[in-house]
């Protein structure tokens, strides 16, 4: 029954969006695909999502398709980018699926011909057209924000900074923590968007505030929960929300100047050693169940139209957000990293 409905919907989508669907056929999860994936028995996922979430996502897939193990390789987006390049440069093909929080990577990998065209049916049916590559090599798996935040035990709500410029107040010197764009795609994308809005002088001045430098954008929320620092300059909204859900005294700040939007695409690699498991995994991750799971258990946001935003998060259109621009990041990443390293000396 559902197959028939899926077929009709796919047909409708094909008719309604002939341009998007023309390049790559949307792919369904077929019994043949499942059988072939089971035969491979494993899928290796390079991912930049927070580690505990990454394992949760993996378990969700393993529960849906018993007999296929997920091997999670979690690291920072920029680290994954470097490692995939280094491994491919040495003819090592381990990764099946890759997802990072630097949308620019996918532009580059597509250019290099490393990505397999594969569009899960859900993407074509339920995602906005600008959220997937017309050639079907990648699609926006998840969306989150890079938010400011503070520890409510260390700072009273009325004293908390409201925007980025507030952070330059000398009273916050030595009390902030920030992720590193050499490691984290979220930090890189965020630095790009903020520097575009506020100018690089902002970061130059911020660097004079004795900011604690951590690598991953998943870490500032953890440093807030420890009470090691009072304010995070950047960090994942979903991780901070998760920390808050666990009962820690933290609060999210959506900056007055606007909050960077971080889109994390996902792609199947052309040279995947487990091509069927990779496709099955990709389809599952983009299914409504997979997407809603991200929202419910990880506090993520989704482009899937049938999902509901987490009840404890404001809707995206209620927040002032900064515009994402993957193509520009692709061109400027090196410069951004170099400049950031110069100011923050790491």
């Amino acid at each position: 029954m559902s197959r028939a409905r899926n077929f009709l919907m796919a047909l409708a989508a094909a008719l309604l969006a002939p341009i998007a669907a023309s390049a790559v056929e949307p792919s369904k999860i077929t019994p043949e695909l499942i059988a072939a994936a089971r035969k491979e028995g494993k899928v290796v996922v390079y991912t930049s999502i927070e580690l505990q979430m990454a394992e949760k996502v993996a378990k969700h897939f393993e529960a849906a398709y018993p007999g296929i193990k997920v091997q999670v390789e979690r690291s920072g987006s920029e680290r994954l980018f470097q490692r995939l390049g280094q491994e491919y440069g040495s003819n090592i093909r381990v990764a099946d699926v890759i997802t990072t929080s630097d949308a620019a990577h996918f532009v580059i990998w597509k250019r290099q011909g490393w990505l397999a065209p594969y569009l899960p049916e859900d993407v074509v049916l339920h995602f906005p057209k600008e959220q997937y590559d017309p050639d079907g090599t990648y699609a926006s798996w998840r969306l989150s924000l890079s938010v400011m935040g503070y520890n409510t035990k260390l700072i009273k709500a009325e004293d908390a900074p409201k925007g980025y410029r507030d952070l330059l107040d000398p009273k916050w010197a030595g009390r902030m923590v920030k992720a590193n764009p050499n490691y984290s795609g979220t930090a890189l994308t965020g630095v790009f968007q903020i520097s575009r809005e506020l100018g690089w002088e902002f970061f130059e001045k911020l660097a004079g505030q004795r900011v604690m430098q951590v690598q991953s954008s998943t870490e500032p929320p953890k440093k807030l929960s420890l009470g090691e620092r009072a304010i995070q300059v950047d960090g994942n909204e979903y991780v901070l929300l998760q920390v808050k859900r666990e009962g820690n005294p933290v609060e999210i700040i959506y900056a007055r100047e606007g909050t960077p939007v971080i889109i994390s695409p996902s792609a199947v690699l052309k040279a995947a050693p487990n091509p069927n498991a990779a496709r099955l995994y990709q389809s599952h991750m983009f299914s409504r169940a997979g997407q809603q799971m991200l929202i419910d258990s990880a506090g993520m946001r989704s482009y899937h139209r049938q999902t509901k935003v987490a009840p404890d998060l404001p809707a995206l259109d209620a927040i002032k957000v900064l515009k994402d621009d993957a193509a520009a990041v692709a061109d400027e990443a090196e410069k951004i990293k170099e400049r950031h390293s110069r100011y923050f000396r790491t």
Partner: peptide
């Protein structure tokens, strides 16, 4: 190291980069 040739010390270092003190 690569994905399939990680050793414990590298895993611990990775975990530190994402601030996972408990594990």
């Amino acid at each position: 190291f690569t994905a399939n040739t990680k050793v414990i010390s590298v895993v611990i270092y990775d975990l530190n980069e994402s601030g996972d003190l408990g594990p």
